[in-house]
Amino acid sequence: MSIILDHLCHTYEAGTTLKSEALKDISLKIDDGEFIGLIGHTGSGKSTLVQHLNGLLKPTSGNIYYNGADINDSDYDIKSLRKEVGLVFQYPEHQLFETDVFSDVCFGPKNMGFDKKEVELTAYSALETVGIDHDLFYVSPFDLSGGQKRRVAIAGVLAMKPKVLILDEPTAGLDPAGRDEILGLVRKLHKENGITVILVSHSMEDVANNVGRIIVMERGGIFMDGTPTDIFARSDELETIGLAAPEVTYIMRALKKKGLDVNTFATTIDEAVPSILSALKARKC
């Protein structure tokens, strides 16, 4: 079970003066159960790339295989692909439209042709998963707070029971606690439900704390691909495209220079603290 991108290219407005190459020759394999962080500047092609994964955009050239089948074959069932590969857009709360929260979450599974009972069951469990209180199920989605709206919108995608979940900057515009709630939710979905997650983000910190693999995009191509430790060890390369490793990594390196024997591969606070403590202890001896 996997997604394979084979020499994928996408050109917007092909054949006009405004044409722009959004994706250039991307080859990639995404395995089942991975947790991937997709990082890059605005305009680096991240959003274009993820919209290919559930067939919303068609490649200009190249192929996409989901579980071995080419999703752009004329007889491929695109609806079933969209059920399996859930895509949560940036500011997903802007897509809410129903009169109450529960019906809005039912929209996806209903479109997928689930029977009535199953629709309600999946919607119910999706809302539970994202942590929306029962007494909010029948209020208008427009009366919720920003963070709640976002979670309802995510539930709307989860209700289709996707096997792969793509989230395009799910924390944009939220306050720190709201951000932690969403990231916690995503972590839980990956860990407990075994969903493959692709997290599109600008924030190195968010990614470093969560994912197992980072893909860095730049000008429509893949700039780097590897584990967070690998990627952040090459932070000087990241800097050439205006990105950077988490601040913690830089602090660890500076400490090493000052003669403290710390782990310079630490990317999160949780990793850094024990390393600094043991290094300080070692120095005292």
Partner: peptide, 15 residues
């Protein structure tokens, strides 16, 4: 108060 502090401050705090 549903807020956090900059990464550096947080690291120092944890230490």
């Amino acid at each position: 108060l549903r807020l956090t502090v900059p990464q550096v401050t947080l690291l120092a705090h944890e230490l």
